[in-house]
C-alpha cells in the first residue's frame, strides 16, 4: 500500500490527554475514478463520542464504513493513506477482515434485524464466531439487552420474531446485537434518521451510557443531536475535513466560516 505524500491538508490533531484510539492518516478514498475522501488526517479519542456532520455526499458515511471495511463489498474501490485502530493498521494484508469487524461493531441507518428471534439476533455474532454454550449466550443476551435499555421490554418474549418489535425497539436491538460480542468501537451511521423523536431520545440516552464502555463514532444530520451526544465533532464538506474540534467549540465558536454557516443552518 502506498502512502500518500504529505500534503497541506487540514491536518487537525487535537492535543488532548485522551488516548487517540482511531487514527486517520493522510487518508483518501476512491469509488472507481471518483475521489470521495481527500487526504484526511485526524484522531478520535477512546471512550468518547465523535460526531461526523456535513451535508449529504460529503463522504462522512463512506469514511465511517471504512473503519470496519464495509466498503470492501463494493467493486472498484481503492484508497491511499492509512487508518489505525489502537495503533494497528486496518488495511494490513495479514489482517482478516472478520477479526477487524469483531472489534468494530456497526449500527446502520435503517434498522435491520435478522428475520430470526430476538435471542438469535443478539447471539448471532457469537454463533458465527463458533461460540454456542447456552449459559454464555444467555448471559450475553441479558447483558446486551440491559446495556441497550431493551431488557425490560422484551425479556418475556426473547423467542419471538425480532420483526414484531417497533421501529425504535428494533434499532435498540440492532445496537444490542452490535455490542453483544464486546467490540471496542461502535460505528453508528445516522442511527436515528428513521425514528420518531421519542425513540430518538432513548437512543441518545443510550449513547451517553454506552460511551463509558465503547469508543463511538456517529454520523448524523441532526445538529442538535451532534451537539447533545458527542464530545468531538468533525465537519466535512465535499470529501474534505473542514474542521474538527471539541463539540462545544464547533457549535459555539467555530474557526471556519463554512462550519459556522453549516451549524447555524445558513449553509447552501
Amino acid at each position: 500500500m502506498t502512502t500518500a505524500a504529505p500534503s497541506e491538508s487540514p491536518a487537525q490533531t487535537i492535543s488532548s490527554p485522551d488516548e487517540q484510539y482511531i487514527q486517520v492518516k493522510d487518508f483518501s478514498f476512491w469509488y472507481g475514478s471518483s475521489q470521495v475522501i481527500f487526504d484526511q488526517t485526524f484522531d478520535m479519542p477512546k471512550q468518547k463520542v465523535t460526531a461526523f456532520i456535513g451535508p449529504s455526499g460529503c463522504g462522512k458515511s463512506t469514511l465511517l464504513r471504512c473503519f470496519n471495511r464495509m466498503n470492501d463489498l463494493i467493486d472498484g474501490i481503492h484508497h491511499t493513506g492509512d487508518v489505525q485502530v489502537g495503533g494497528e493498521s486496518i488495511f494490513d494484508p495479514m489482517l482478516e477482515v472478520i477479526s477487524l469487524r469483531k472489534r468494530v461493531g456497526m449500527v446502520f441507518q435503517k434498522y435491520n434485524p435478522f428475520p430470526k428471534s430476538i435471542y438469535e439476533n443478539i447471539v448471532y455474532s457469537l454463533r458465527v464466531a463458533g461460540r454456542s454454550k447456552k449459559s454464555e449466550l444467555d448471559e450475553v443476551v441479558e447483558r446486551s439487552l440491559r446495556s441497550s435499555a431493551l431488557w425490560d421490554e422484551v425479556k418475556d418474549r426473547l423467542q419471538d420474531s425480532a420483526l414484531g418489535l417497533s421501529g425504535g425497539q428494533m434499532q435498540r436491538l440492532c445496537i444490542a446485537r452490535a455490542i453483544a460480542n464486546q467490540p471496542e468501537i461502535l460505528l453508528m451511521d445516522e442511527p436515528c434518521s428513521a425514528l420518531d423523536p421519542v425513540a430518538t431520545g432513548k437512543i441518545e440516552e443510550l449513547i451517553h451510557s454506552l460511551k463509558r464502555q465503547f469508543t463511538i463514532v456517529i454520523v448524523t444530520h441532526n445538529m442538535q443531536q451532534a451537539a447533545r451526544v458527542s464530545d468531538r465533532t468533525a465537519f466535512f464538506y465535499l470529501g474534505k475535513l473542514i474542521e474538527y474540534d471539541e463539540t462545544q467549540k464547533i457549535f459555539m465558536n467555530p474557526e471556519k466560516s463554512q462550519t459556522e454557516d453549516y451549524v447555524s443552518g445558513r449553509f447552501g
Binding site: N68, G105, M106, V128, A178, N181
Partner: peptide, 21 residues
C-alpha cells in the same frame, strides 16, 4: 435486502456464513 447482509458481515460473519445463515 442489502441491509441484513451488511448487518451480518458487520457482526463478523464470513460471506459463506452470511449466505448460509
Amino acid at each position: 435486502p442489502r441491509g441484513v447482509r451488511e448487518a451480518s458481515l458487520a457482526c463478523g460473519a464470513s460471506k459463506w456464513q452470511t449466505i448460509q445463515r
